[in-house]
Design a binder for these strands. Structure first.
Length: 949
RNA sequence: GCCGGGGUUCCCGAGCGGUCAAAGGGGGUGGACUCAAGAUCCUCUGCGUAAAGCUUCGCAGGUUCGAAUCCUGCCCCCGGCACCA
């Protein structure tokens, strides 16, 4: 039996579709190549730049299955789709592996890339592989270096001796964003502070634009809020406090200038340069030194954690209050962070909890300068800091008392500005991006240090500065071990000089790869402005939430910075961002300990409490051992089944639970799907009235499919293509349809829908029905809009189905009353006046009439002029009024249409009888002479009463 | 504490003023087919009843002819930020 013989394949057998063969055909036909010259509208679909670990995991599979479905749909809908892939191939894992196991990061990386590439290709994703980008390719990092040079010349990249985060395990520094809860984001090792000469990008320069830009892009709300938190905009004032007996001035930043009169001390961070100056040679110096030594070696995390223990030392010096001239003691405190604001705060214990704590500890006076209610006693003592906005009281200067909130703050800043001792300012939490890494496997920073000329840029013509191979991976920065790399002549003066040995953070590489993709085969330039402007921005960007702050802030910063260098004209790199949900799988769980254990503990008692373990869904992870290998699943079920399962089991943004039974059941769907072409092509009947319905239904499904795709509701799209259409076809057949010609038309259109999520199967279908070429390279023929006839057929069948539904619902009960099986039924269509009333009421309300006032209108109508007036008006209030609003738009159209319910149902009476297992079904108009049931009362338009006998 | 997202019928999950007792899936039920199993198809899955009515969408109120959906207050869960001046 041939491998292509469908229908008799058992569930546990390998999928019959030869997926690899189709992948080869796609490859040979170059159908996924995307070219600038293509005149169709562009669509840029992108997934986050992957790190090339050796194996593809389920998270990758999910990410790419989503992206691929979006790309394939757009391609089929006539877009010129740019859908590239590449590898974020610099980074520490390869270097650590080289250090620990021998070998060279280059070889390790290339080997991993080859292996993961093969696995990705086996899934059949529709990438334009020609455009592949690799961070560690000198053809790529040459331009990364070029951009660094440009930034340097513009002052956007600079070198500074500063305290930085140091990860001892990774033997390198980290950016602020890369420190998570005081630990390294990559290795989770402890992070300490160290002062070093380091390279920075001046990200705060773009802070405002990075906040504003969030309003123009379609990111999930949580990502926007994460980014805003990270950028940390705060408005306030900078105020100068002159230090007594010196020329020194302490600048403080405050968000609450309205509390200025409540300042009873000023506090400096221990690292504040002025702190040492103030105490030098005094009896206070040792106190400061002790605090400094304690605090400066702490990681920022530990430090913030310990801030609740207020520590501080007096400096022995005083400053002058800028408005009142009062003498204010200067303290040095552990709770002030040197790098935030100005590294100094004005302390207002009356209206700030932290300052209140400190004042209590050191017995510093507390002053009330705000009242929380307008007419409160201004002299009421403060039991605790009152931090809300309030009305200014006790102001030593005229004109401030009684001012509130914004107004109060403005009055103070105005007063300061007029005296030149303060100004309104904006402060940001985001700090410059530290890009230096003391590691080998990254883009070398193109700088030469010359004794005479200082810091010198490597001339553009000498780029790229390539990584040397003669390095030793032991401890420290391997680049320093390469004589050939380090020793270089100064490009300016020619004297012997030293190369910079720091390399760049790999997040620099991933900050512009999406622009390189647009022109990645071009080695003359990073990208042609015209090309990048054509393809950017990214229309659909899919990846994990873990990049919500780092990558997504850096990439946005880079895009704006390159734009300002005149290299392109794009403001925001990513228009639509979708963060895919986690992939979970069951893991042992102890209810009483609330702990998850690795799968090794399955079937044994809880290691902590000895209680029984149950299963619970948890993120797939190596440590829990609950991972599922994509490779094995592809081997067992094929790539199409894996894709179908992944797309169908959850919406892209929702968490997804892995289930062995569910993937098996999806595989059965695939097997059933495989037989569809032969099933439909085997029809040998002629045209029938159901054909009109089927064609209308097909058109409806295509529309629904596109709506779902537009909303990235891939679950719904797959449901339409792989579940609903089967049900529709079953209905068509059940109603007697078997038109061979229509069968071909259905399958032709359907193949396109199927190709979005299960492309290999779609090719198989395309071939089976004798179509030319590859369906994945063929635009979908858009069907004509639904015709009036088709609509009416859809409507009649909808009516039929709803009648059948309610008939089935009451059949059991009816049979109980009949004391035996029902033999026949009479369908009593609602009397004409009900439909007239319904339409009249709909018109009335749609024209803005109040439902309450319809009774008056109804009383004027002809139908209420007879003896049934009371009954009819009663019917309106009790039955029709609630129903009027329940009809959807389609039903409203139907009510006003020519549809004759009696006729439509009479034509289908035989089918109804068959479905209900009855000998006969009669359809009558309620209250007409033929209606002997007396049961028309329960009927409604589009919902006849059914009387069993 | 602040910001963002949530709490829906046995479970997962859609809905976000009337088509809502509430899609779809899972699980369960009954039936068709079959020697049987699998697969497939159909029915039912809040109580109730010849279609009524009643209760239900975290809790309590409110707006409306009508609320799962809108407003107010409260409780709980998840994520982020946080002695940030």
């Amino acid at each position: 039996m041939s491998r292509k013989a469908f229908g008799v394949i058992m569930a546990d057998e390998y999928t019959p579709v030869d997926e690899v063969a189709w992948q080869q055909k796609w490859d040979e036909a170059n159908i996924f190549d995307c070219n600038m010259a293509d005149e169709r509208p562009k669509f840029y679909c992108l997934e986050m730049y992957p790190y090339p670990s050796g194996k593809m995991h389920m998270g990758h599979v999910r990410n790419y299955s989503i992206g691929d479905a979006v790309a394939r749909n757009k391609r089929m809908m006539g877009f010129n789709v740019l859908y590239p892939i590449g590898f974020d191939s610099f980074g520490m894992p390869a270097e650590n592996a080289a250090r620990d196991e021998g070998g060279h990061p280059y070889e390790i990386t290339e080997r991993n890339m080859a292996s993961i590439t093969q696995q990705i290709k086996r899934m059949g994703f529709s990438y334009d592989w020609r455009r592949q980008v690799k961070s560690h390719d000198p053809r790529y990092y040459k331009w990364t270096q070029y951009f660094f040079s440009q930034f340097y010349q513009k002052g956007l990249a600079y070198r500074e001796f500063a305290p930085v985060n140091w990860c001892g395990q990774c033997v390198t520094v980290l950016a602020n964003e890369q420190v998570k809860a005081g630990r390294c984001w990559r290795c989770n090792g402890p992070v300490t502070q160290k002062e070093m000469n380091q390279w920075f990008f001046d990200t705060p320069q773009y802070a405002q634009e990075l906040v504003d830009g969030l309003e123009t892009v379609a990111y999930p709300e949580n990502v926007k809020s994460l980014q805003k938190d990270w950028l940390g905009r705060s408005e306030g004032a900078e105020i100068s406090f002159k230090v007594n007996d010196s020329e020194l001035v302490i600048e403080v930043f405050t968000t609450r200038p309205d509390t200025l009169f409540g300042v009873t001390f000023v506090t400096l961070a221990p690292e504040h340069p002025m702190a040492e100056q103030l105490v030098q040679g005094t009896k206070y110096e040792s106190g400061w030194k002790a605090l400094y030594d304690e605090v400066s070696v702490m990681s920022e995390f530990d430090r913030i954690k310990n801030m609740n223990k207020k520590k501080g030392v007096p400096s022995g010096r005083f400053a002058t209050h800028p408005l009142t001239g009062e003498q204010i003691p200067i303290w040095i405190g552990n709770f002030v962070i040197a790098s935030y604001g100005t590294g100094a705060v004005m302390a207002v214990p009356g209206h700030d909890e932290r300052d209140f704590d400190f004042a209590q500890t050191f017995d510093i006076p507390v002053k009330r300068v705000l009242s929380m209610t307008e007419d409160a006693d201004p002299l009421a003592p403060l039991e605790a800091a009152e931090t809300d906005f309030g009305w200014m009281v006790n102001s030593p200067i005229e004109g401030f008392d009684g001012l509130y909130g914004e107004e109060a703050m403005k009055a103070i800043t105005d007063a300061l500005e007029s005296k030149g001792i303060g100004k309104q300012t904006l402060n940001w939490k985001i700090r410059p991006w530290l890009i230096s890494r003391q590691r080998y496997w990254g883009t070398p920073i193109p700088i030469i240090h010359c004794e005479d000329c200082g810091v010198v840029l490597v001339p553009e013509s000498d780029l790229p500065v390539e990584l040397p191979t003669d390095v030793v991976f032991a401890t420290g920065n391997p680049l320093e071990t390469s004589e050939s790399f380090v020793n270089v002549d100064c490009p300016t003066c020619g004297k012997a000089a030293r190369r910079e040995t720091d390399t760049m953070d790999t997040f620099v590489d991933s900050s512009w790869y999406f622009m390189r993709y647009t022109d990645s085969m071009n080695d003359d330039i990073f990208f042609e402005p015209e090309t990048v402007n054509h393809f950017m921005n990214v229309d659909f960007y899919c990846g994990g939430i873990e990049h919500a702050q780092m990558h997504l802030i850096y990439a946005r910063f880079f895009t704006k910075a390159l734009r300002d260098l005149g290299l392109h004209s794009i403001d925001e790199p990513f228009n639509k961002l979708l963060c895919q949900g986690m992939v979970n799988a069951p893991a042992p769980w102890c209810e009483s300990c609330q702990l998850t254990f690795s799968v090794g503990h399955a079937d044994s008692p809880c290691p902590h409490c000895d209680g029984p373990l149950t299963n619970r869904s948890a993120k797939m992870s190596k440590s829990l051992g609950n991972t599922v290998s994509p490779g094995l699943m592809i081997e067992k079920y094929g790539a199409d089944t894996v894709r179908l399962f992944i797309l169908f089991s959850a919406n892209p943004t929702a968490g997804m639970d892995w289930s062995d039974t569910a993937i098996a059941s999806n595989h059965r769907v695939m097997i059933q799907m495989a037989s569809m072409p032969s099933r439909l092509l085997a029809w040998n009947g002629s045209a029938s009235s159901m054909d009109t319905w089927m064609l209308g239904r097909l058109k409806q499904r295509c529309e629904e499919f596109q709506i779902a795709m537009e909303h990235f509701d891939l679950r719904r799209a797959v449901e339409i293509s792989h579940y609903d259409l089967i049900k529709d076809i079953n209905w068509y057949v059940r109603r007697g349809g078997e038109n061979a010609q229509l069968g071909l038309q259905i399958i032709k259109t359907w193949t396109h829908l199927v190709s979005v999520s299960t492309p290999h199967l779609a090719e198989e279908w395309w071939q089976t029905i004798g179509m030319e070429g590859l369906v994945c390279g063929t635009e979908m023929e858009i069907l004509a809009p639904i015709s009036a006839d088709e609509q009416s057929a859809l409507d009649c069948e909808t009516l039929l189905r709803s009648v059948l539904d309610s008939a089935r619902r009451i059949k059991d009960v009816a049979e109980r009353h009949l004391d035996g099986p029902a033999q026949s039924a009479i369908v009593v269509v609602s009397p004409t006046w009900k439909r007239t009333m319904a339409v009249e009421a709909l018109d009335f309300i749609e024209q803005g009439g109040s439902p309450k006032k319809f009774v008056a209108h109804l009383s004027q109508m002809e139908m209420t002029q007879g003896e049934r007036k009371g009954e009819i008006i009663g019917y309106w209030g009790k039955k029709m009024l609630p129903q009027v609003f329940k009809w959807d738009d389609a039903s409203r159209v139907l009510l006003r249409s020519e549809l004759d319910e009696v006729e439509a149902l009479s034509q289908r009476a035989h089918f109804i009888a068959e479905e209900l297992g009855l000998q006969s079904v009669q359809v009558v108009l309620g209250e007409s002479p033929e209606d002997e049931t007396g049961r028309a009362g329960g009927s409604l338009p589009l919902a006849p009463a059914i009387v069993y006998a």
